[in-house]
Every structure is written in C-alpha cells, then in structure tokens.
Design a protein around this nucleic acid. Sequence first.
DNA 1: CCGATGACCACCC
DNA 2: CGGGTGGCCATCG
Length: 114
Amino acid sequence: MEAYTKQVISIIQKIPLGTVATYGQIARLAGNPRAARQVARILHSMSQKYDLPWHRVVNAKGEIVIGDPETAIEQKYRLAEEGVEFFRQNKVKLVTFQWQPEELCLSAESSDLD
DNA sequence: CCGATGACCACCC
DNA sequence: CGGGTGGCCATCG
C-alpha cells in the first residue's frame, strides 16, 4: 500500500468523536494539499476494509457530498448521534464542529511560550 | 493512450 | 446563501 494512503487512513482514525474534518484538510495534513479528491476516493474504497470514521468527513463547506443517497443519510444520522448539529438539510456547523488537530500542529511554535 | 468520472476546492456573481 | 466554472489528479473502460 502506498505511504500516502496509510497517512490518510491514520489521520482519519485520529478524528475525535463529535467532530468533523474536511477532505481538503485531511489532504493537507497528509502532505498533498491538492489531493482532496483522492482522499475522498481512498475513504470510499477503504472504509469498508479498515475501520474508519468515514462519516466524520465532509467537504469544505461542511456539506455531505456523498453520491449514494442511502450512504449520505447514514452519515447524517451517525453525525447526529455524535452530537453534531446541522445547518440546513445536509450542512454541518463547521465553525463549531470542525476538528482542530492541535496534537499534530504543536512542535511548530511554543518552546519559549510560557 | 485517451476521454470520462468523481464521497473535492477556490472563485466569482 | 446558492449555483455555475475551471482546475486537480488517480482510476477506469
């Protein structure tokens, strides 16, 4: 398996319960800012083989963009179960629920913060 | 090899 | 906020 794919999977598994991440966000964390679509494809194909919280991933606008209506409904249902609220029909409140991966960002600054 | 496709994204109006 | 447009890039037939 490609390293990039592993990276994507590992990142998705770190998304905390009750929060959401965007495809582009994951692509950036994995090191390929332009690979949002590929992240989506990986999610689509791997979520069944691996145990991924695929429902915690939405597009940059916070919308559920899954093609298959049944799957989209399931995603919405699962997010609701975790306490994630919806804006309109299929939009989540990104400002409130988007994942802030601080664990992965620190080490950049800090040091002499105090 | 090439064109079409897609669980995307940024931009513009 | 919503809808259209061009760009991206791996997969597929």
